[in-house]
């Protein structure tokens, strides 16, 4: 098995290249969520270019659709399309590689972009699995700022009502949103209690940028019966370089040349360290 932590730095570099090529993107959230995506696509889900139309495949919906650059990097690595295609097309006139997931691209199930849609859609997917007595699992990733959308809680309510233990949601808890700290914009510190009160199994992932911890949490979620599970993944927005880490301004900042050089250097150093861990 490839060292996925090493891979996470390679894919972060791909994300930086995509963003710089398209002069657009949501860099901070890409960097916080990418380890979750890598864990799902390389450790957890039975999704590949071979089985993408198989009714028994696991399903994934990127509810925080603005972090699509991270998804592009992961899907390109999985072979759904070429990284060169993404670099050439991202955010360009007439391109399929737009700034949010769209299901005209192979490997993407649902279009997203507006927040608060992924979880309710996944409730439908998980319900279909139960109705058909299929064993596939359904995953979605939401941002923490996204939790202010009321539709998230409509979905959360239905997921426990229908005992959807085949559904696992992840909250990318990076504690920042476009206007600043989540706790200043709309507080979510009682997140665990909220989900519990909605009937969910809650797993706190202390380091949501640790693939090892995420993998263990997803494995644990699979053993829980009769209710859905949410992973509260405590992540660092901009994770990978001090240039962008924990800085609200990097929600959708495009690195300038100097920043680009420093970020790539930092990512290489961390990759090097991961190689020797």
């Amino acid at each position: 098995m490839e060292n996925l932590t090493v891979l996470s730095y390679d894919l972060r570099k791909d994300v930086i290249e995509i963003i710089c090529a398209g002069k657009a993107g949501h860099i901070g959230g890409d960097m916080s969520v990418i380890d979750t995506l890598i864990t799902l696509y390389f450790k957890q889900m039975n999704i590949s270019t071979e089985n993408m139309d198989d009714p028994d495949r696991d399903r994934f919906v990127m509810s925080k659709g603005h972090s699509v650059e991270a998804l592009y990097a992961v899907l390109a690595k999985k072979g759904f399309f070429g990284l060169d295609e993404v670099l050439e097309g991202f955010s360009k006139f007439g391109s399929k590689f737009i700034g949010h997931p769209n299901n005209k691209l192979p490997g993407i199930e649902m279009n997203s972009g507006s927040l608060g849609h992924g979880l309710p859609v996944c409730v439908g997917m998980a319900l279909a699995g139960k109705m058909n007595r299929q064993d596939y699992r359904v995953y979605t990733v939401m941002g923490d700022g996204e939790l202010a959308e009321g539709s998230v809680w409509e979905g959360a309510m239905a997921a426990s009502h229908y005992k959807l233990d085949n559904l696992c949601a992840v909250v990318d808890r990076n504690r920042l949103q476009i206007s600043g700290n989540t706790e200043d914009v709309m507080h979510h510190d009682d997140l665990h209690e909220r989900f519990r009160s909605f009937g969910w199994n809650v797993i706190d992932v202390e380091n949501g940028n640790s693939i090892e911890q995420l993998d263990a949490a997803f494995n644990k979620a699979k053993t829980v019966k009769g209710r859905p599970t949410v992973l509260i993944a405590n992540t660092v927005k901009g994770c990978g370089s001090p240039v962008m880490e924990n800085k609200a301004g990097w929600h959708h900042h495009v690195p300038n040349e100097e920043e680009y050089i420093q970020i790539m250097k930092d990512l290489d150093e961390r990759k090097e360290a991961a190689l020797h861990e």
Partner: peptide, 15 residues
Amino acid sequence: QNLVSIAAGLAKCGK
């Protein structure tokens, strides 16, 4: 809102 999103999720899985 949930009604319509759930319907979409069901439909995406063949319903």
